[in-house]
Design a protein around this nucleic acid. Structure first.
Lengths: 142, 142
DNA sequence: TCCCTTGGTTCGTGATAAGAACTACTTTAG
DNA sequence: CTAAAGTAGTTCTTATCACGAACCAAGGGA
């Protein structure tokens, strides 16, 4: 359980604030909250029910209900009633939502690209590998 | 302006969500919001005025006013009237706030330590260097 | 001195999250 | 087959928190 160096802890948190800051600003530019942005990210490759969605976003189901209300009102997602279970519905992105998600993804990677330009390609590869191993370890608890 | 690989973008954002998630949970365990946590972080080595503080936190001055109200009510910080300018006051951490900040810092680095244990010491050093260069570049725009 | 700027606070409003209560459907135990 | 228990979602009330506009002093020229 050797403590990591303060420099590393500090650098990582600074990085995380920088990244989140970018996300928040970019989302805001499209009138989205950070949670709505995460929602779009999640729906990119999933079509979860409310409950599952709430779990992903770490929200109460009542909160995600409201979240989807708002997103649906803006035409970004739609509730799809389940055929098998008449209580359930899944949430799916609309074409409009998908387009917005794609645009955001683009802007994000453009901005991040500017930051990462300080590193050489081999360095970026190395960084990718290191970070992936760390986040990998973070998954299990979830 | 070469786009970074999606894998890297993805890994970095995943990491940033993991880190922020830790912060949020830890802060919540002490009944603090993320912003209050950042406040403590900022006050560790500064004694800013309201306006300067708002800038650091990217809040409106009215918001930081309320923020400090709440933190002050909990005895974590105090407003120190400026001697030179009778309008102004600076915000300073109290002993109680400092103690809490220290405890949080400890918990944070303990949790992060568990994550970073997947890397060897040389790898951590490498990671530190890479991340520092990236965040360094992020500073200027601020 | 008069006016403009600056540091802060107050107040009203809006967004969002939690939790409890409720509806409707499914599943399970007898 | 039916009653009881569980599950998926919604609704409603409440609390937090951020913003913006209005406001109050107190500085600082000209």
């Amino acid at each position: 359980m050797s403590k990591p160096s303060p420099a590393l802890v500090d650098a990582l948190f600074r990085l995380s604030f920088v990244l989140q800051g970018h996300l928040v600003r970019l989302a805001a530019a499209h009138d989205l909250s950070l949670v709505q942005l995460r929602l779009l990210g999640i729906l990119r490759d999933r079509e979860p029910g409310m409950l599952e969605l709430a779990r992903h976003l770490e929200l109460e189901k009542s909160s995600s209900s409201g979240l989807i209300d708002r997103a649906e009102a803006r035409g970004l997602v739609e509730r799809v009633p389940s055929k098998e279970d008449r209580r359930a519905a899944t949430v799916r992105m609309t074409a409009r939502g998908r387009k917005l998600a794609r645009a955001l993804e683009d802007e994000v990677s453009r901005e991040l690209g500017a930051l990462l330009a300080v590193l050489s390609e081999p360095e970026r590869v190395k960084l990718t590998a290191l970070v992936e191993r760390v986040v990998e370890r973070a998954k299990p608890p979830a």
